[in-house]
Amino acid sequence: MIPEFEKFKGFKAKNLPKAEPLSSGHRACQGCGEVLALRMVMKALGKDVIVCNATGCMEIITSPYPHTAWKVPWIHIAFENAASVASGVESARRVLARKGKIPKKHVDIMAVGGDGATGDIGLQFISGAFERGHDFLYVCLDNEAYMNTGVQRSGCTPYGAMTTTSPPGKKSFGQVTWKKNVPAIAVAHNIPYVATASPAYFLDLMNKVKKAALVKGPAYVHIYSPCPTGWGSAGERSIEISRLAVETKVFPLYEVIEGRYIISRKITKPKPVTEYLKGQRRFRHLDEEHIEYIQRRVDAEYEKLLRLAEMS
């Protein structure tokens, strides 16, 4: 087991940190699930952290100069390279601490980006940083499309979803590919900690983020983040939709600790995927046949996950 976890008692409703390293007053849309997830991430990390932010919604809405929502050191360089920027910060702090130029006290280093920044354009940078073994955590806030540029499809956009570059039409039903499994790509790097999380289960989310920060070496947390603007869903339903994604097995919650899969929340009585799909404009055009396919594939993917957990 991971020694750093032993002393960590876990967050509970009673001992939630009061501090908000990411302050309110930013410019996210109403009901934004991504900024809510980010707020929880920051609550879990506290103030001894350096944040390296990829270009995307979260960077834009928190930093319109001269305003900033960040009460912790924060840097944004570009879209695809947050993991490399974090590599640089970590290397710098390592040598500076060794030389006695900064206090030896541990500071967490987090790279954070959207699904596009992480699973598409930034994949190589993340792979490099994981493979080199930098002590940092990478958080992907997955709202399943390029939202900042106006809802274009990404590799993480779910099957059938309508985006501005996967529009349904006479010859198309929306996104034709299945969602890319980015956590599995992270696992393939043999890093000590990988997890998926959802803002509907905020204690689980915060505990996973904290564990990712505690573990020595690279860690990856993939967080489901509803985007009412891009999904065509009601702002007040973001948490409900997040919960449905878990209850329908569409977005399972698990950890992979040193290669061992552990399911955080086993779904024994799953709800049908239709429960999840309805109320999201991005899925409205889907016919029976596609929905059946989605159901079959969701079941099969979940089975695969269960087998991985049994094998570990």
């Binding site: 360089i77 390279n81 640089g88 702090r93 940078f125």
Partner: peptide, 13 residues
């Protein structure tokens, strides 16, 4: 690309 990105992080730190 990563080299220059890493330089940015390290210099900023």
């Amino acid at each position: 690309h990563a080299a220059m990105s890493c330089c940015c992080g390290s210099c900023a730190a």
